[in-house]
Amino acid sequence: MLSYVLRRLAIAVPTLLLLIILSFLLMHAAPGGPFTQEHELPPAVLDNLNAKYGLDQPLWQQMASYVWGIVAHFDFGPSFVYKDRTVNEIIAQGFPVTLTYGLLAFMVAALAGIALGVIAAVKHNSWLDYLAVGISIGAQVLPNFVMAPILILVFTLWLGWLPGGGWEGGQWQYLIMPVIALSTSFLASIARITRSSMLEVLNANHIRTARAKGLPERQVILRHALKPALLPVISYLGPTFVVMITGSVVVDVIFSTGGIGKAFVDSALNRDYAVMLGVTILVGALTILFNLIVDILYAWIDPKIRL
């Protein structure tokens, strides 16, 4: 098991480095510098600015210090637009928010999705099954940026039950709609995957044996059927987490929650490359981390993978 983890790590670390280097090079390949403005700056000012941000050094040196800053000090450098703020500060402000509603949405999607899928499979071809399948098909065409406005329309404008946006330190009223908007389509996908893999497992021989032994149905389903049935679900969870972080961009824009997605969109519109790069690399690191966790979880459940 340990050697498997090490082998995955040996792939994950270079991937991350490559991501950092490639995004850095991409930033430098972009036409126009960070100080390109409508009014051309005097050359002396430009030189000073370049010296301040280290842009007068040769490219490889800039890259080395950027990569070293991230790896050694977790430092993404200064923002190119806000003179008094570093990328770290901007990320530190938004990240806890994103993480709070992101993890909540992830948990809701995973738990409710698996529960819905298992119920649908156990009550195969009953009205519960049809309801679950119907929900999962319907939710598939409602991505977060469609779901969120509809939620606001119904719960804020028509019913007036929930605030239409804001964060207020993460009080529950402000959390409900972002979490629902973010989790619905994943809940649906997870339910669909769980249902089909559960249906397959329930027809397997070891389930028949378990039933023949006279085990209570509860135990057959929870202990003997669920574990193998969850394998495809787990491999889906890794990418899901990342797509959810991506979805946080929309949630931040619509619900004004002020998470990291807001920082990203703002920097995209301001052409603040340093912040964009920082957020991209952070999300990339999370992606790689989550894929690693999923791989390890997978190997733990299914010993065949470890080979």
Partner: peptide
Amino acid sequence: SVPYMFVLILLLVMF
């Protein structure tokens, strides 16, 4: 393992 949506936006903004 590249967060493609972010990179795509990065590309769109830079070019």
